[in-house]
């Protein structure tokens, strides 16, 4: 890829900075009071006795009066934080409903394969039952094989429907070990029909030891799906190269999605993760993809980094805390024990 553009790391924001401001406000009168008392003590409280006493009294009154206000403000702030979280939760759910349409087309395809096999097996049993004469014993064997195959395909179908349920289910799952290599490959597979339509070359640079993050497969899949869809959108009909990379460093795992598309103009960079910020025409983008993604990643204790050279492309990197508790040496000659991995 081309030269480096500006780098911007976006951390998830809460109402934390506001809360600190309010606390500082509360501390201010107390500080003034303290300073005043100190001054009074130093001057020995000689002449301005009455004036000083009055001022002291006034300040005490201000402090006392501001306590309920400050408490109220603090209360409101935590309520706002809660509402914010609920809002994002609802957004995530809505976006999921919206993307279910696309995902369901690929799931329908997955489901039609076992259905097609069952169809042929059942048809073959029918053929055998209708077939006059022939070797009875051989036919029985054939029928047994076909019925077994139907059972195998039913099991396979059940796994697929289970996947749809997982996808549609509410988001709060306990954190599991997520193999990023596996997840990226599977997410890519969901977009296969889009990849075929446009001329996109996929380059994979996956770490040889799969990086494992703690999170929910469904949620992280949504993050990567959003990033990949953005990358494809950015490259448009002309296509380009989609680069999927993973790596791990001590304590952190990274997965990045790079494209050779339009890139991001500097003025858009600060607004990228705002809900409803979109440069896409109406009906093509809601501007929720990145907002939801950064919320999910933030919840898992990670962040999303963006690097872009306008006109040459963009790289979005998801950085997550590594799942392993033991410290990993940067170089350990491949003698690494297999990590537990989660199926997608």
């Amino acid at each position: 890829m081309g030269g480096r553009g500006e780098i911007k790391a976006i951390a998830p924001v809460g109402g934390r900075s506001l809360r600190t401001a309010v606390l500082a406000l509360a501390a201010l009168p107390a500080l003034v009071l303290l300073a005043f008392a100190l001054l009074l003590a130093l001057t020995g409280g000689r002449r301005p006795g009455a004036l000083a006493g009055l001022l002291l009294l006034a300040l005490c009154a201000v402090l006392l009066a501001s306590i309920p206000l400050i408490l109220h403000l603090l209360h409101r702030l935590s309520a706002m934080e809660r509402q914010g979280a609920a809002f994002y939760h609802e957004l995530t759910r809505l976006a999921k409903v919206a993307s279910l349409g696309e995902v369901s087309s690929s799931i329908a395809h997955d489901l039609n394969n076992p259905l097609a096999i069952m169809n042929e097996e059942a048809g073959w049993v029918m053929d055998l039952l209708q077939g006059a004469g022939g070797d009875e014993r051989a036919a029985r064997e054939e029928i047994r094989h076909s019925v077994e195959q139907i059972q195998i395909q039913i099991r396979r179908s059940r796994e697929i429907t289970q996947r749809i349920l997982n996808w549609a289910r509410d988001t709060d799952e306990p954190a599991a070990a997520v193999d990023l290599n596996l997840l990226l490959n599977k997410t890519l597979y969901l977009l296969e029909s889009d990849l075929q339509r446009v001329q996109v070359r996929v380059v994979k640079r996956l770490a040889s030891v799969p990086p494992v993050a703690a999170g929910s497969v469904a949620e992280l899949r949504q993050v990567f799906l959003n990033l990949m869809k953005n990358a494809l959108d950015a490259m448009g009909e002309t296509g380009g190269t989609l680069t999927i990379a993973t790596s791990s460093s001590p304590g952190e795992v990274r997965a990045s999605i790079g494209d050779t598309g339009s890139g991001i103009p500097p003025e858009a960079l600060p607004r990228l993760f705002e809900p409803f910020f979109t440069t896409k025409e109406e009906g093509k983008g809601t501007g929720l993809g990145l907002a939801i993604s950064s919320w999910i990643v933030g919840k898992l204790g990670g962040r999303i980094e963006v690097e872009s050279t306008p006109g040459q492309g963009a790289v979005f990197t998801v950085v997550l805390p590594a799942r392993t508790s033991e410290a990993m040496e940067p170089c350990n000659g491949g003698s690494h024990a297999g990590h537990p991995t989660a199926a997608g």
Binding site: S106, H109, L111, N112, N113, L115, A116, N119
Partner: peptide
Amino acid sequence: LSGNASINTAVEGMRLGAADYLLKPAEI
């Protein structure tokens, strides 16, 4: 032969010279 009813694929296939198009699962 395709597992999902994508008009795009059908059209693309016919344009490239396919004789026909079948959806899975299909009747014999």
